[in-house]
Simulated assay, not measured.
Amino acid sequence: MAVTYEELTTKHPCFARGEHSSNGRIHLPVSPTCNIECRFCERSINSYENRPGVAATVIRPEEAAKAVEKALELCPEIKVAGIAGPGDTLASNCALRTFGLIKEKFPQLVKCMSTNGLLLAEKAQEVIDAGVDSLTVTVNAVDPEIEAKLNAGISWHGKHYEGVEAAKILIEQQIKGIKLVSDAGMTVKVNTVLVPGINVDHIGEIARTVAEAGASIYNIIPLIPQHQLKDCPPPTCEEIEGAIRAAQEYIDVFRHCHRCRADAVGIPGGKDFGDEVYMQRLSAKDTFSHG
């Protein structure tokens, strides 16, 4: 039986009401590759950056199960096993294999997955069968012209697409996928990276579209200037608040995102147990491509 949205507010730090939660999570860095080319995304293997898309190492699904066991010994407050990178969770079969193992060995844990949504529609039943309880889809625009300014291209069914053509495919697959999994009873959260001058005035339209598709909660993530958008300023407090107000007309808005690493372990805002769990925190920066 799927975990309800109300249950998630008591177990999942990303759904907790208020700014604090005593529940922890472990992010399992099992997804090595990505299939889209976000202009703001610099995926990296290192131990020193605290942001999404970063992990100290990539592990195999079988290693992930052992990592969960160790994490629970160190932090019994962990209620969620999540996979959010460092690549996309559906660009390989590693995340779904891992969730299958977690479902069998740790049935008490909430299973949470993040994806860019390009392959969500066609893999929706696999996601459901793997026992995923909550799904996060990053949707940065629902207008292809705007999306093309944020995403240079996609790799889809053995072919590379660029610009508006790529954006149309991505948006169509994202919305179709959100509807499929939400109709099956899964709770869907949508993340949007807020980028001044590009999608800052588009948030209401995104929120309306994803809410109509079945998403339950919306998370606005301020841009971290890097990669092709390194010269773009981060949004101001006024722009963030304006975006939240626009989104709130259509959907519940999550306000206390910590922008966690892909190998974070513990209670958000508290001690991170990643060093003890993974034992491979590196010191040298090694950026790799989106695949």
Score class of each variant (00 low, 15 high):
Thr287Cys: 01
Leu90Lys: 04
Pro76Ser: 13
Leu120Thr: 13
Val127Gly: 01
Tyr278Val: 00
Leu28Tyr: 09
Val195Gln: 12
Ala264Trp: 01
Lys230Asn: 11
Asp272Cys: 12
Met279Leu: 14
Ser31Met: 03
Phe99Ala: 05
Asn151Phe: 00
Glu42Val: 12
Cys257Phe: 08
Phe254Ala: 04
Leu170Asp: 06
Gly163Glu: 11
Thr236Arg: 06
Leu90Tyr: 01
Lys66Phe: 00
Thr192Gln: 10
Gly214Trp: 04
Ser134Thr: 12
Ala55Met: 02
Met1His: 13
Asn116Tyr: 08
Ser289Thr: 15
Leu150Ile: 15
Ala243Lys: 10
Gly269Ile: 07
Gln226Tyr: 11
Lys79Met: 05
Thr98Ile: 08
Lys70Val: 03
Arg259His: 10
Gly204Gln: 11
Leu119Arg: 12
Gly177Gln: 03
Thr4Asn: 07
Arg17Tyr: 02
Glu126Met: 12
Leu118Lys: 08
Ile83His: 01
Ile220Asn: 04
Leu282Tyr: 08
Val132Glu: 02
Pro268Thr: 12
Pro86Ala: 09
Cys237Arg: 13
Ala284Tyr: 10
Val277Ser: 05
Ala2Leu: 13
Leu28Pro: 09
Phe288Asn: 07
Met279Thr: 13
Thr57Gln: 11
Glu62Leu: 03
Pro32Tyr: 10
Pro225Glu: 09
Lys149Gln: 15
Pro61Gly: 05
Glu162Ile: 04
Ile175Lys: 03
Leu101Phe: 04
Glu212Trp: 05
Ile240Cys: 01
Thr9Tyr: 01
Phe254Cys: 02
Lys176Cys: 06
Ile45Tyr: 14
Asn35Pro: 02
Lys123Gln: 14
Leu28Gln: 06
Lys105Trp: 01
Glu63Gly: 15
Ile171Leu: 05
His157Asn: 12
Ala141Ser: 15
Glu126Gly: 01
Gly18Phe: 05
Gly158Ala: 14
Asp275Gln: 02
Val132Phe: 08
Asn50Ile: 11
Ala284His: 14
Arg208Thr: 00
Cys34Ala: 12
Gly177Val: 03
Glu63Tyr: 02
Pro61Trp: 03
Ala91Asn: 05
Pro234Val: 08
Ala211Glu: 11
Arg60Ile: 00
Asn199Tyr: 06
Pro234Phe: 03
Arg208Cys: 00
Lys179Cys: 03
Pro233Lys: 13
Asn46His: 12
Leu101Ser: 03
Glu63Phe: 09
Gln280Thr: 10
Gly242Arg: 09
Ala84Gly: 00
Val132Lys: 02
Val210Tyr: 02
Ile178Phe: 06
Pro13Gly: 00
His20Pro: 00
Val80Ser: 01
Ala84Tyr: 04
Glu205Leu: 11
